[in-house]
Design a protein around this nucleic acid. Structure first.
Lengths: 241, 241
DNA sequence: AAGTGGTCTAGACCACAAG
DNA sequence: TTGTGGTCTAGACCACTTA
C-alpha cells in the first residue's frame, strides 16, 4: 500500500479498524509516528485522514494521550458532513432511497413557491420546477420541491429524476457542484405531502432548505425537502477547539 | 501584525473584508502568495484560516481561478459549526439569549426521560436533571431538558443555569468539552413547552438532541432542546470534494 | 522526563482555468 | 503558457498528559 492520499487512507484506516487489526483492547490506535511508517505517509496526510474519521464520529484524539476508536452509534441517521447525494448517504447505512413519483415543468421565476434569501434574478428568468416523492426502504420518506436555473442546466432527463439528481449534475461538465448552503428547520406538513406520508396536515416535518452552487460560485438550484418526522434524523459531530 | 495564528488570521481577514480593503470590485481576494506576504504567514496557516471562512459562508475558493467573498446572507440562523455555547452564537447575530426559568434536581439514571443511544450506565448512577425555558430577544425560543453525570461535574451552581452552562463547564478544570454528537429531528411539541411558547400541543418543533463528551472521551451530559419552530433555523455550508 | 497530539514553517508538485 | 488553488513531503517547536 504505497502512496495513499488522505481520502484513500481514511477508508483504509476504517477498514483496518473494523478488521480489528489496528486498535488495542482500550480502543487506542497506535501513535501518529507509528501510523506514519505503517501507512507510509507524512503526518499531514495522516492527520487529514484522522480529521475525516473524527468528523464521521469514528475516532477522537486527546492531546497528550492518544487516538481512540469510538463505540459505534451512527445507526440510521443522515450524516450532515456526507459527500454526494442523499441516495448515496442512506446507502451507507444500508437503506435504499427510491423515487416514487416525480414531475418537472418550466416556469417563470415569479411563479416559484419560494426563493433563496439573497437572490437577485433577472426578470423572466426560467426555472425547471421539480416535485418528487421519495421512499426509504418502501416507507414514505420525503417530499421535495426544487428549482433549477434553466440558464445553467438547460434540461434534465426524466430518468435522472428517478435516480440521483446530484449524481447527474456531477457527471455533466457544466454543473459541477462546489458547495451547498443548508438551512434546517421545522414546519407544519403541507397538504401536498400529507397524503403521501399518511400524516395529518400540520403534523411536524423536518425541513431542509438548500441552495446549490457550482464550483464557480454560480447558483445552480434551490430546494426544500419535507422529511417524514417519524423517520428522518440528521447527525453531526461538533468539535470544540 | 506579526505571528498571527490561524484563528486570529481568520478574524483579521473578516475585519479587512468588511472594511473593504481586501476584496476588489468582483469580490475577489488577492491570490494566496500575496495574502501570505501581506499577513506574514505560510500557506498552511493562511489556508487554515480560509477554510474557517469557507465553513462560515464568508468566502469560497475556485480551483485555478481565485478566492471570492460571498454576498452576506447568514441573517438570523444558528451556524452549526459555531464554537462555544448557544448564547455566544446568537450574540454573533446581534440577538440575546436569556434564561427565563430554570430548575435542577438530582435523580437516578433509571428516572431519566431519555438516554443516549449507545449508553452503558452503572446501576444507580446519579444525574443532575435540568430544565430550562429560554427566550431570544424576549420571545419564547426553546425548552431544554438536560442531564449531567453527577460523577463527572459534582455540582452546578444555580447562577450558571441563568448564564451559559457551556461556558461554566469550559471554565472548570475537570469538564473541558472535546466534542458533541448532535442529532437533529422534528417532533410534536410536548405539553411542558406549549404554554411557554404559546403554541398548541403537537405543533411542530425543531429538536436538537446532543451528547457532550470531555476531551478525554468521557460522557459529560446529554440533552434535548425543543426549539420554537417559528423562530429557530440552523445553518451550515456543505463543501463538495 | 518521555511520549502524545496541536500548530506552524518551508518548499515541492499537481490539477484546473484563462488567455 | 501563466497563474490559480489542491495536495503532499519534511521537519520544527509547542502544549498537554502521565509517570
Amino acid at each position: 500500500m504505497a502512496h495513499l492520499n488522505a481520502n484513500a487512507l481514511a477508508q483504509q484506516i476504517i477498514a483496518d479498524i473494523q478488521s480489528g487489526s489496528l486498535a488495542d483492547d482500550q480502543l487506542k490506535l497506535p501513535a501518529e509516528p507509528e501510523l506514519m511508517t505503517h501507512y507510509q505517509v507524512t503526518r499531514y496526510t495522516l492527520r487529514q485522514a484522522l480529521k475525516q474519521l473524527g468528523n464521521m464520529g469514528y475516532t477522537y484524539q486527546t492531546h497528550g494521550v492518544g487516538t481512540f476508536v469510538r463505540p459505534q452509534q451512527t445507526t440510521n441517521s443522515i450524516a450532515l458532513e456526507h459527500n454526494g447525494g442523499l441516495a448515496d448517504e442512506v446507502a451507507r447505512t444500508g437503506s435504499q432511497l427510491t423515487t416514487k413519483t416525480a414531475e418537472q415543468r418550466l416556469i417563470d421565476v415569479a411563479d416559484a413557491d419560494f426563493l433563496p434569501a439573497a437572490s437577485h434574478f433577472e426578470a423572466g428568468e426560467k426555472l425547471i420546477e421539480i416535485r418528487r416523492f421519495r421512499e426509504l426502504d418502501g416507507q414514505p420518506y420525503l417530499m421535495e420541491r426544487s428549482y433549477y436555473l434553466q440558464s445553467v442546466i438547460k434540461t434534465i432527463p426524466d430518468s435522472a429524476l428517478y435516480d440521483s439528481l446530484f449524481n447527474y449534475c456531477e457527471q455533466q461538465r457544466e454543473t459541477k457542484i462546489g458547495f451547498i448552503d443548508q438551512s434546517i428547520m421545522s414546519e407544519p406538513l403541507p397538504a401536498a405531502a400529507s397524503d403521501f406520508m399518511a400524516l395529518p396536515v400540520g403534523a411536524p416535518s423536518l425541513v431542509v432548505q438548500d441552495e446549490s452552487y457550482l464550483i464557480t460560485g454560480q447558483l445552480l438550484a434551490f430546494s426544500k425537502q419535507y422529511y417524514n418526522y417519524k423517520m428522518a434524523k440528521l447527525f453531526m459531530v461538533k468539535k470544540i477547539h
